[in-house]
């Protein structure tokens, strides 16, 4: 190593140390932990070493439910949030005068505590005097017990999560919209392009990098969903645990059931899922770009 690159590494050292201490080390510990049974103070050893934790994990119907719920959550929240954010960003961007105002309004959820937002949404979801049921009443829909009945737990969670994740996406898309040259839109007008076609053939392709970015970030975030569950159902996983997600499951096993090994195994499974999904996503969009 020559002098120059040594100096370079020296600059990197603080962040490398922090990353090793708080990311890499816990990751390795978690992986090791997932293969170890309970620690016994009497024997000074682990009750088992191997795949027992994983066996327990996959035999647990709660974990199966959490996998299912998380998958549904990701499939619903990520695309819906991106599509809605895209539409809203384009609308905000098109009205010049009120742009700054709406930009702030839509960004508020991002900088507000999830717990606070959860309280607001609990009120909106309230079956008797909630805003949502009041609104649905206009269309002749009977009040829905959003937060009290198991079958509505996931829909309520998903609606809440879509709304919450839109703030970040709108911000990204608004920034992206500003980089699209105005002349492209002028050219589109000269070419008599219908409004919808301007959106699908010019705006969306021009925003493609931002859309890919948002969907990768959004998907990773969605797989790790926990805060939203916690805040909407006041620390529980919904009525009859029907809104159980993977991270909530891990949390529950760790802090409530003291099954550290199973919790670690759950984390490793989640880690692998996210790794595989993002790889697939990047590969697919990368391939498209090449074409």
């Amino acid at each position: 190593m020559d002098k120059k690159s040594f100096k370079g590494y020296l600059y990197l050292l603080p962040s490398i140390i922090i990353m090793l201490a708080f990311t890499i080390y816990p990751l390795i510990r978690a992986i090791i932990m997932s293969f170890l049974g309970d620690y016994s103070i009497i024997n000074h050893g682990y009750s088992s070493i191997g795949f027992d934790n994983y066996k327990a994990l996959f035999a647990d119907p709660d974990f199966a439910l959490s996998l299912r719920n998380t998958s549904i959550y990701v499939i619903c929240v990520v695309p819906a949030s991106i599509i809605l954010s895209l539409i809203i960003a384009v609308l905000i961007n098109s009205c010049n005068k009120t742009k700054a105002f709406f930009q702030t309004v839509y960004f508020l959820p991002y900088v507000t505590s999830v717990i606070a937002i959860g309280i607001v949404w609990r009120w909106m979801f309230n079956s008797n005097y909630g805003l949502i049921n009041y609104f649905l009443g206009f269309f002749g829909i009977d009040p829905i017990p959003w937060l009290n009945r198991p079958e509505y737990a996931m829909p309520a969670l998903i609606i809440f999560a879509i709304w919450k994740s839109m703030a970040f996406n709108i911000l990204i898309f608004l920034a992206g919209l500003q980089t699209i040259p105005e002349d492209l839109y002028r050219a589109a007008r000269i070419d008599s392009t219908p409004k919808l076609r301007v959106f699908t053939r010019i705006t969306v392709p021009q925003l493609a990098p931002m859309i890919v970015y948002s969907s990768v970030i959004g998907m990773i975030g969605a797989f790790k969903v926990y805060n939203e569950v916690f805040s909407l159902f006041q620390g529980k996983a919904g009525p009859a645990n029907k809104a159980m997600t993977i991270v909530y499951y891990i949390y529950d096993k760790f802090y409530n059931s003291y099954k550290y090994g199973v919790a670690a195994a759950g984390s490793v499974v989640l880690f692998i899922i996210i790794l595989v999904m993002t790889q697939i996503q990047l590969r697919v969009t990368g391939e498209k770009k090449k074409k």
């Binding site: 002349d183 002028r186 050219a187 392709p205 021009q206 493609a208």
Partner: peptide, 14 residues
């Protein structure tokens, strides 16, 4: 009308 812009304004992704 046909208009050719100073910077051409071709659709770059097409």
């Amino acid at each position: 009308i046909g208009l050719v812009f100073q910077n051409y304004a071709l659709y770059p992704h097409m």
